[in-house]
Design a binder for these strands. Structure first.
Lengths: 150, 150
DNA sequence: GGACGATCATATGTACACGAATGAAGCGGT
DNA sequence: ACCGCTTCATTCGTGTACATATGATCGTCC
């Protein structure tokens, strides 16, 4: 009797509830964010990963694909497609690395730089909208905890 | 001078840092979790969504695909593929709904039930491993905050 | 009871995400 | 100079994830 009460109140109990699992909530939170992102980037037609790639290239200048992948947490196989689509839209350029013939160095085109400026402004609003359900005081707490899980 | 100091210390400042954005951290945390999941479910060859579908069917019994999709936060187009793969492995069965000829009702096969029992035990360890970087006291806080973002 | 809008499953196309494999190129040690 | 190990970019295959479209069926309102 007492055991059951304790379980119901403070422990997770014997039953497995999908909606209580970190993974599931993490997945749904990520889903919600990408929906907000897609909405906020509507006119620019940028996905979260495409935006991340552009922002990083802008940060660090000439980078190889694999290096950019490490900086943005993308697989070589994943970033390959992202780069391909950005290049097709002429937002980035590619040129062979004179020092290492295996690499191709990436950089922003003029159009890429212009579009990124717009995108960053939107990204700030997207971050704000994503965190909107949390009172400002809790946002830092949440981010600090979330960062520990990386 | 003073302004710059304040910005550096407590405000987000003018520069846009990708690694400070919720979306990016959320994406990476989700990535890490799926990696842990894949590792923990190695022998069973279940993906997070496949596991979620099995667990939910076990919970609620006969469900239509779309209904299951709503319960597990999956698009009709997404759950279609998940169901198809689970059926191919004979973990779930499908039969027409006598009350509504548009629907097909899903349920676990004997193999599905057996595999799920094993999977749930593993899923508990996966949740534990995902939250391992957080001291126990912070886990409830984190989950409570994360849930607000859904 | 017939038309209309909603819902169900499915299909197509695009975009991440990653394992695994491949060929080209770099590099260190002998 | 050569061999082996690593790294780079690419490719293939599988699996989410979602927009959009389609045909079948259901409910409802007139």
């Amino acid at each position: 009797m007492k055991t059951a009460a304790i379980r119901r109140d403070s422990r997770q109990g014997d039953d497995y509830r999908l909606e209580d699992q970190v993974g599931h909530v993490l997945r749904r939170a990520h889903q919600r964010h990408t929906a907000i992102f897609q909405d906020g980037m509507d006119e620019l037609q940028l996905t979260p990963t495409q935006f991340a790639a552009l922002a990083k290239i802008s940060d660090v200048g000439d980078v190889s694909q694999n290096q950019l992948g490490r900086l943005t947490a993308m697989d070589p196989a994943t970033i390959q497609g992202v780069i391909q689509r950005l290049e097709a839209r002429k937002l980035i350029g590619r040129q062979p690395d004179p020092k290492d013939r295996r690499c191709t160095l990436l950089n922003l085109t003029v159009e890429g730089r212009a579009l990124l400026a717009d995108a960053v402004a939107r990204a700030r609003r997207i971050t704000e909208a994503t965190l909107a359900p949390l009172p400002p005081a809790e946002r830092q707490t949440f981010l600090a905890l979330l960062r520990k899980l990386i």
